[in-house]
Design a protein around this nucleic acid. Structure first.
Length: 537
RNA sequence: AGCGCGUUGGUCUAACGGUAGGGCACCGGUCUCUCAAAUCGGUGGCACGGGUUCGACUCCCGUACGCGCUACCA
């Protein structure tokens, strides 16, 4: 039933001794399951765990909880690594690094079996040969008579079987699971303390939960509950921060820790991240919501600092009131957690992110965009690489030397739409009948543009430069300002506003753009003439 | 169904049992060649019902609603 060379618990206790850490040091962990891409909630919990461990002089571990081999997704572990790297949240110990490994549950089979065998020896666990059909039948009968469901008491058909029955099944090679013999009573209550919520009371666990999955599997793996007890004890984790959906299983965990003779960790259950839906909110779903995946934020190009700042603000409201740099340094306090699940608000994230990017210099932004584009917009890379000076000049427009820099970049993927027009390779010339120049007769547009080209002076004073448009507008009959035009709309083809739009669309291909003079200076005289010339026809 | 967790404007959050305040969003003004920004102002909230109290967002009970757990998923 067990390998001959299985270690004894005492040997494991020796191999994974208590950590030598300063008093009050907290050892925490994140245990993502590679059954899907990393969830934004996992990133949130990872950040919290890491922050608290490091602030107290403890350790933060990354443990891959791959005990559900049927649902495992290839490549998920690598994606975890990339995601944690992107957000600057590396673990102190993880697969291959650290004295308390392996940090992959699928490689800890012997460790789990050691403790399972021990519980078996002590009569605190037993072999269960119940088939799927039998379990379904038990469930059906319980449902029918409105009895609380579960494998317990008289329903636990293998709980108190004769050794002979067990041996017979073993002899015929029937697969079995190992179940915990729960000491819980039917109407028992469990009371425990949560570091965030205080005293919690819950129906006690009475189920003889499975602790080791079917012997028919190639690798004998534990269920979450058993792995949690064994791993967190052996890895000397003393603070378990996890999502609140685990509150219901704390009684089970407490029983397991007690049966194994382990000291129980402190629990802190945090509220899950939610998503707004019409008429309410629900937990972010990995399958339905793209923004549930960390990949979404990486692909969109949200700066890591902005994400972390946003997430910290959700964890502790106080941190949302602090400036970014300060909030990133300030400690996250368990006592300050809200208990209701906050909504992930992409609009708020955008705002934070735009504010943050506005504090960056052009070269910093360009470097980040370049890194982002390499993975997510390959066509943009050669364009940037061919014109680094132009890229920097474009980013400098209304950003450098001004009091309030433009906030037109919320994420790196915005660069193409906001600044792409500066690059001739990404710009499509505009013609006079373009729908973006609305309300003005194409013939007039052509004449206006032609005049502009004919007399263009690449002046370096903003007022003087714009004076060219002003003069031309007057010459072609445009009203000097919007007010005049509004007063007497039939007398003019438009106002200075409409006239400016001709040049704006010609130069930028958009009705909205940064300051025209700055754009023109950045583009250079030749390019300005080429673009306006195209409108002239 | 049972058990648990929760509920302050649209959203994130403050407020010894004593005038419900701020951020984002939204709306409007200013600025202006457009947009963004900036700045000024505005709309909007204690889920409901009882109880305790001189006084309840706050404490207690109930109801409703939301979320979760009741797996050889985590």
């Amino acid at each position: 039933m067990f390998p001959a060379d299985l270690p004894e618990p005492a040997e494991l206790e020796q191999r994974y001794p208590e950590r030598q850490l300063p008093a009050g040091a907290l050892v925490t962990r994140i245990g993502p399951s590679p059954t899907g891409w990393l969830h934004i909630g996992a990133l949130y919990v990872a950040m919290i765990n890491r922050d608290i461990a490091h602030r107290t002089g403890g350790r933060y571990l990354l443990r891959i909880e791959d005990t559900d081999q049927a649902r495992e997704l290839a490549g998920a572990v690598d994606q975890f690594q990339r995601a944690f790297d992107y957000f600057g949240l590396p673990a102190d110990e993880f697969d291959g690094v650290g004295d308390y490994g392996p940090y992959k549950q699928s490689e800890r089979e012997a460790i789990y079996l050691t403790y399972a065998r021990e519980l078996l020896r002590e009569g605190k666990a037993y072999l269960c040969f119940a088939t799927e059909d039998e379990l379904a039948d038990i469930r059906r009968r319980q449902d029918a008579s409105k009895i609380p469901p579960g494998y317990y008491g008289g329903w636990a058909i293998w709980r108190d079987r004769d050794d002979a029955d067990v041996q017979a099944k073993l002899d015929e090679g029937a697969p079995y699971v190992i179940r915990f013999r729960s000491p819980g009573e039917v109407n028992g209550r469990a009371v425990f303390t949560d570091a965030i919520r205080g005293r919690l009371e819950h129906e006690d666990n009475r189920n003889d939960v499975v602790i080791v999955k079917s012997s028919a599997n190639a690798v004998r793996l534990p269920t979450y509950h058993f792995a949690h007890a064994v791993d967190d004890h052996l890895m000397r984790v003393n603070l378990v921060i996890r999502a609140e959906e685990w509150i219901s299983s704390v009684p089970t965990h407490l029983q397991l820790f007690a049966a194994l003779g382990f000291e129980q960790p402190t629990y802190a259950h945090i509220a899950p991240l939610m998503k707004q839906i019409s008429g309410g909110k629900r937990k972010l779903s990995k399958r339905k919501d793209p923004e549930a995946s960390v990949d979404f934020y990486v692909a969109e190009g949200y700066p890591a600092a902005a994400m972390l700042y946003y997430l910290r603000g959700l964890a502790n409201g106080r941190l949302a009131e602090l400036p970014l740099a300060e909030a990133l340094e300030a400690p996250i306090e368990l006592a300050e957690f809200g208990v209701a699940g906050p909504l992930v608000d992409l609009v708020k994230l955008d705002d934070i992110s735009a504010d943050h990017i506005a504090t960056l210099s052009g070269p910093e932004i360009l470097a980040a965009v370049r890194v982002w584009a390499a993975d997510h917009d390959a066509d943009l890379v050669p364009v940037i690489d061919a014109n680094p000076e132009l890229a920097l000049a474009a980013l400098a427009v209304e950003r450098e030397g001004v009091e309030n820099p433009r906030k037109d970049l919320r994420k790196w993927s915005d660069f193409r739409t906001a600044y792409g027009f500066f690059f001739p390779e990404l710009f499509t010339l505009v013609t006079a009948d373009d729908e973006r120049i609305q309300g003005v007769d194409p013939a007039l547009i052509r004449a206006f543009a032609a005049d502009f080209v004919a007399g263009y002076q690449h002046l370096d004073d903003g007022q003087e430069w714009f004076g060219q448009i002003r003069d031309l507008a007057t010459k072609h009959g445009f009203a000097p300002n919007a007010k005049e035009y509004k007063k007497n709309p039939d007398a003019y083809p438009g106002s200075i506003r409409e006239a400016s739009q001709i040049i704006r669309v010609a130069l930028t291909g958009s009705t909205r753009s940064p300051d025209l003079f700055a754009v023109a200076r950045t583009l250079g005289a030749d390019e300005v003439l080429r673009r306006v010339g195209a409108v002239a026809g």
